[in-house]
């Protein structure tokens, strides 16, 4: 039974369709990420759930009840905005207390819950601080406490970590995940950062140009991308043009001088996608020449010129000797490490 359900939701601004045919079931306690480049419709979808925008078509249901009929102020969702949107004229405690006050929670209980919420995000002792006098990370925590203290049915996070520096962002990711696990609030995160989506979510909704490209666990979307877009967007990938050769038995997949038994159900021109870290140097396979070799501490990054076009290879720095720039190499990978799709336009 779906907890939050989006049923063929679409949003148009004038003639422009920003979100189209968006269907998703979210289970209670699940952590979902909407992942995609800017302008893909992820924030618009979030705003429709929050009620700041009305869907042009489709329905949004929470526990079976139509959410679109409810005023945004009555939906009881917790939202953390990209800009944090803290009330600058109120202290941290007053910010967190605001939602409770709107719900008519008595003063005594309010104070207790505010203190607990601030403690949960590690801000005990900052009650009387004004947002302007707090760091970005602290403001972020206040915003989170403010959204969570009202015990929201769903927590909506709109690029909450994008204004933090890299190190702080990583810390907050871990903390966010822990808090979410502890209290079990159903959470939707909007982000353009694939690492963030992968490290936080139970499932990722990859979006492009207003449509869902793929819904799946982080591992599924990474290992088995449903489209070229997904494989490109989630990390680096190599796309090689190949063909299915039916003149031999068993049929073979051919890409340059690399060959493998063909997967079932495909024929003719195909695209072979392989992640750079799954490619190894071997005695047979795609012939290539190493153009540049970059040392990156825990791994090496090779840019190669292969017979099927440019290729990127990542090798763990395991202390062994690596080929040098200018070396001729053979690129090889296991069949289970690639995904093969029919080539568009061929």
């Amino acid at each position: 039974m779906a907890y939050l359900e989006l049923d063929r939701v679409a949003k148009q601004f004038g003639a422009q369709t920003v979100v189209d045919d968006f269907s998703l079931s979210v289970g209670k306690g699940e952590f979902i990420s909407f992942l995609g480049p800017s302008g893909c419709g992820k924030t618009t979808t979030l705003q429709m759930i929050a009620g700041f925008l009305d869907p042009t078509r489709g329905a949004i249901r929470l526990e079976g009840k139509d959410l679109t009929a409810i005023h945004p102020a009555k939906r009881g969702l917790g939202i953390v905005f990209q800009s944090y949107a803290l009330f600058p004229h109120m202290t941290a405690a007053e910010n967190v207390a605001f939602g409770l006050e709107m719900r008519g929670v008595p003063r005594g209980e309010r104070a207790k819950r505010v203190r607990a919420a601030l403690a949960m995000v590690g801000l005990s002792g900052y009650e009387d601080r004004h947002p302007r006098r707090m760091s970005g990370g602290q403001q972020q925590r206040v915003a989170l406490a403010r959204a969570l203290v009202i015990k929201p049915s769903v927590l909506l996070l709109d690029e909450p970590l994008s204004n933090l520096d890299a190190k702080l962002r990583e810390e907050m990711q871990i903390e966010l995940r822990q808090i979410q696990r502890t209290i079990g609030t159903t959470t939707i995160l909007v982000t353009h950062d694939q690492n963030e989506a992968m490290s936080l979510s139970d499932r990722i909704v990859v979006m492009s140009q207003g449509r869902i490209e793929q819904i799946g666990t982080p591992q599924e979307t990474y290992e088995k991308p449903a489209s070229a877009f997904v494989s490109q967007f989630l990390g680096k990938t190599n796309d090689f043009a190949g063909t299915i050769d039916r003149t031999v038995a068993p049929t073979q997949l051919v890409a340059g001088s690399w060959r493998a038994p063909a997967p079932a159900g495909l024929g003719g021109a195909v695209t072979v996608s392989v992640r750079p870290e799954r490619i190894g140097f071997g005695d047979t396979g795609l012939s290539a020449k190493i153009i540049t070799r970059i040392f990156q501490g825990n791994h090496w990054l090779f840019q190669c010129d292969s017979e099927c076009g440019p290729a990127i290879v990542i090798r763990q720095n395991d202390g062994k000797a690596q080929p040098a720039e200018g070396d001729a190499v053979r690129l090889t990978w296991r069949s289970e490490d690639m995904s093969v799709r029919a080539r568009a336009g061929a």
């Binding site: 009620g51 700041f52 925008l53 009305d54 679109t68 009929a69 409810i70 005023h71 009555k74």
Partner: peptide, 8 residues
């Protein structure tokens, strides 16, 4: 309570 945002 269900006045659409557009109408508002």
């Amino acid at each position: 309570m269900s006045m659409a945002a557009e109408e508002r």
